[in-house]
Design a protein around this nucleic acid. Structure first.
Lengths: 349, 349
DNA sequence: GGAAGCTTTGCACACGTGTGCAAAGCTTGC
DNA sequence: GCAAGCTTTGCACACGTGTGCAAAGCTTCC
């Protein structure tokens, strides 16, 4: 009894100096070596049933949790995956992050989220910060990291996966939706609806996907001998969609409009309706993304869909693809898109 | 030249066995001790200008990044903050995560995101996992952790901050919007609009905020001698809002409805309009949250707003509040809400 | 030039874990 | 009971950093 009491006091003193219970604390209570504790918590390691039980009881009593930081020190890598994104409230981004973070967790990886909303000097500092955590991979959903920082990641055996942006000769994996194909589908659908006075709505953002979609659409429409009216200013918001409607529909008599994102399209729809345009009778509208709100009864937007689960699946595959020494097999994947017909485009003419 | 060549080969061999450049590698190239490298990268530590320069050049040449995991081992704590959330695509949650992750980053903390979408056995396993990363604090946006795991966090000096949920006698900080006050405001607004046949739309979720809002609203309406028609099934989605409209408006001749979230309200609006109800002429509708979509021209939802920046600010304040030994000063904060008048409720009668 | 005071430096240890390996212990078969 | 083979164990080291402290170095003043 007296020995036991001294024993407990000793434990309390150790806890006071450090926040977390250590394997040493557990070993003492269980009456085994610290090594036995380690082996008990290491899958596949050799430990007798008796020792295992005593260790587990002691660990439970003390509330012991393995220190993943210390573990990662040994392997020189954590199971953290850095995820860089901005505009996380936007429906498309939010859904991407939702699905990616869940998929990572299900694969035993943890999501270290870096919000790039205020990364005015580019995302290089964020990536440098992420590297300090010895992440396994970095998924870039927003921003375009320069080659130099990507090369540094690769030198440290950290995969960089760019989502919906190009790599510019750097050794990054890229997973892109077929923006060109989607723009073509949208162009053809408007032409098939009989539209001849056509507009395209982008934003002021130099986001590669948006620029690609806009330019490809304009090109396809020009192949039909039609010159598109272009809106390309403002932020990528619903409000910009409204402004675009006010701006384009005041100076043009349009009968068909392609918006490079659904959010722009929903704003455009509301703006057009406020100006008395009937959709799709007077004006057809197509978006791109297929965010949840596009299916809402007040909108029923016809849009080009990029499959979120394909995207997430490809990101995971890229993360888990083995790196063979210094020679990296890069992934450059273009995901198919498809037209989702709802109510904002006239039937074929 | 020969010595230099041997020196480079030696570096290459070291890099081949480990992924990341270490302080040892830098020290060798700079011709100083490893301790000098450490001091160069430790703010406030003593190091001569010459040594600092040589170390920085060597670090730049080799692409050295401090290992935060090793650093955290010394301090027994990382600057990681665990954030537990589910339904991250929902407008309100997405916005909360967007603002919180940015605020954390601006305060030198990193967001370890755990998606609780598939946490069927509760979020205890997720919190246990987070503890292994020696986080500084845990912010719970979804799920209600039992007292036991909260107590364990506190025993390890890890703050637990519950957002929009109660603590049930556990030592967690809580930050809650004034659901009761908001429900009262909504009830009074409908009554002032002359509504006498009143409904309330919740969901099947046992989410504390939703249950609180619904019950408080029903109570306030009963104080006016009116019995509310209640909908409380399905998930917390736009689609459930539509179902609620179909269900309630078929069996009740309502002139006023309070939906416990904006998303439910937007679905309810679309459902009611599809059934030929004019809003606000035939039927007034109030939501709660003030998500971005509520301001869209197709909806212009009158709603009760909870301020996201107040919420984020309070979470940060709670994280940064000092813990004094074992006696924790808990935060229990109730954030004010306010009515946002738009177009879905009749003027005062 | 020497003494006093200040700055800088490298050594050796800490932090908490996993693991190679020799030693100890256990089990099985003769 | 002993030998052979297998399992388990604890020691000591590794991983990559920060830091206390004694020693070395530098600067200033008389």
């Amino acid at each position: 009894m007296v020995a036991s009491s001294d024993h407990e006091d000793h434990l309390k003193r150790d806890r006071a100096t450090r926040n977390f219970v250590t394997a040493e604390d557990v070993a003492r209570l269980a009456g085994v070596s610290r090594s036995a504790v380690s082996r008990t918590f290491t899958p596949g390691a050799s430990v007798s049933a008796d020792v295992r039980h005593r260790v587990q009881e002691a660990a439970k009593t003390l509330g012991y949790r393995v220190n993943r930081l210390a573990r990662s020190l040994i392997s020189d890598q954590s199971n953290l995956v850095g995820v860089v994104g901005a505009n996380l409230s936007l429906p498309f981004m939010a859904r991407q992050l939702d699905e990616l973070s869940l998929a990572l967790l299900n694969r035993g990886m943890q999501c270290l989220l870096l919000n790039a909303a205020e990364a005015e000097q580019g995302i290089t500092p964020l990536i440098e910060l992420i590297l300090e955590f010895r992440v396994r991979a970095i998924v870039v959903m927003s921003g375009s990291p320069p080659s130099a920082i990507i090369d540094e990641c690769v030198a440290n055996s950290v995969r960089v996966i760019l989502v919906n942006r190009q790599a510019d000769d750097a050794e990054a994996d890229t997973i892109i939706s077929d923006d060109l194909g989607g723009a073509r589908v949208a162009a053809e659908r408007l032409l098939r609806a009989g539209c001849r006075r056509i507009g395209v709505v982008g934003s002021g953002a130099r986001t590669p996907t948006q620029v690609r979609r806009r330019l490809a659409f304009v090109e396809h429409i020009e192949e039909a001998g039609i010159k598109s009216a272009v809106w390309a200013s403002g932020e990528t918001t619903y409000e910009t969609g409204i402004e675009a409607a006010k701006g384009l529909l005041t100076s043009h008599e349009l009968d068909g409009v392609f918006c490079v994102t659904d959010l722009l399209a929903l704003g455009f729809l509301d703006g057009a309706r406020e100006m008395g345009r009937r959709v799709p009778e007077d004006l057809s509208v197509i978006g791109f993304d297929d965010i949840p709100q596009s299916a809402w009864a007040s909108y029923r937007l016809t849009t080009v869909r990029q499959s979120m689960s394909d995207l997430t699946g490809s990101v995971l595959a890229a993360i888990e693809r083995e790196m063979h020494g210094k020679e990296t097999k890069l992934v450059h994947e273009v995901l198919p898109v498809e037209l989702v017909e709802r109510a904002t485009v006239r039937p074929m003419s």
